[in-house]
Design a binder for these strands. Structure first.
Lengths: 223, 223
DNA sequence: GTCTATACTACGATAGAC
DNA sequence: GTCTATCGTAGTATAGAC
């Protein structure tokens, strides 16, 4: 149990190889035999750690969401000025996606593939849904707060969430296409820095209240 | 051959059911038996119309891209003012995605799933790549033109393309998640209209050159 | 906790009758 | 152009030995 002696359990090793494979080819595209041999196990041994393929997939997803949550939560929880909070969300979210490059694809699949899991009410499904909902509603609150304080235009919060997801999760999920579009890997340091800058600037300018006021520090405008 | 007498060939029927299934569950998630019986055929009959599963999938993709191209091309080809052209691109692209709701998911998969097709140089693969590249480079030109004319900030064109894809294709691909986020189907008339408006406004404000100038008609500012 | 062995189904694809 | 039959493989899952 000591992580210094057992740096990773068999279960964690399975999760690691499953995360890599599922990220690349999706749930249906990966077989348990492939996973088992990649983890150095026999096919049947997987069933001693996970009750089935679906549960393994959900465990992978849950771990990915947990890591994102850990990175982004501070930026979302802070009651900082909305524009600064939004910048921090973009930075921390992109940091977490870059640190674990399997995450964007797994998340993207989870978001757009309508889960067709046999038991919709299974505890594993609900755990994943709960984490996702937590992140989304926290970001929703940041946008609404910005609108209420008058530092953002009267944008639709759900639409803004979708745009942010597209600008971050989709972006870093687009593998060959993205690499060809930019002429360099999406994970290259320069490409990551540019992406952060571009997204933050687009949101900065795109969300701010137009008006004749100065484009900086129109803070605290109660009523 | 007369479309009035033969409104759709067997090949088209196969393409239709394949488009629906592949859109929902992806390439690996759909079996040929399922496709065949949904098209009212025996499994083996598929091989008389397509030489294999991969070719069928690529034919579906190509048809989807062709339809998008037909909708969006006029907006991209026009040498109109860049901001107006951008608005038209958003409108026509979203129109085409809504008209064929299978398209967003198929396109999204094509963009982020690194094609692991046996023969990378097969003509079918290149046909799809060509259509995709055509659309992307045309949009690239619109953004660059706007930057050159000074009506857009000095944004990164590839980053802008990624953002637009996320804001449109990802958005309309996000099924259950999107429906839960908005509280109504993404294809509801009100949701579509709002999405168009939000994306166009975000780009309008997010891309325009800041400066002290008026927020409207800073046209023609040659050096 | 991992293994071999096995059950049963489905997969993509081919051959050949009609 | 569609069919039945079949091949070889791989799929998820279970049972039981070690």
């Amino acid at each position: 149990m000591d992580p210094a002696i057992h740096p990773q359990s068999t279960r964690d090793k399975i999760l690691d190889v499953a995360e890599a494979r599922f990220s690349q080819r999706g749930f249906a595209g990966v077989g348990l035999q492939e996973l088992a041999s990649a983890a150095g196990l026999g096919k049947s041994s997987l069933f001693h750690h996970f009750s089935g393929k679906v549960q393994l997939y959900l465990a992978v997803l849950d771990r990915v969401l947990e890591r994102i949550e850990l990175h982004v939560a501070p930026a979302l929880a802070s009651d900082a000025e909305p524009r600064a909070a939004l910048d921090r969300v973009v930075d921390t979210l992109i940091d977490s996606l870059v640190e674990h490059p399997t995450a964007p694809r797994l998340l993207l699949r989870a978001l757009f593939e309508d889960d067709e899991f046999p038991d919709e009410q299974a505890p594993e499904v609900q755990a994943v849904d709960r984490r996702l909902h937590s992140l989304v509603s926290a970001f929703h609150a940041v946008v609404e707060r910005g609108v209420a304080r008058g530092v953002f235009r009267k944008v639709s919060a759900p639409d803004t969430i979708q745009t942010l997801i597209g600008a971050t999760i989709y972006h870093f999920a687009s593998g060959d296409f993205g690499r060809e579009l930019f002429g360099e890997p999406l994970l290259a340091a320069s490409a990551v820095a540019r992406r952060k800058r571009e997204v933050k600037l687009l949101l900065r300018h795109g969300l701010r209240t137009p008006g004749p006021g100065p484009n900086e520090t129109p803070e605290r405008n109660p009523t």
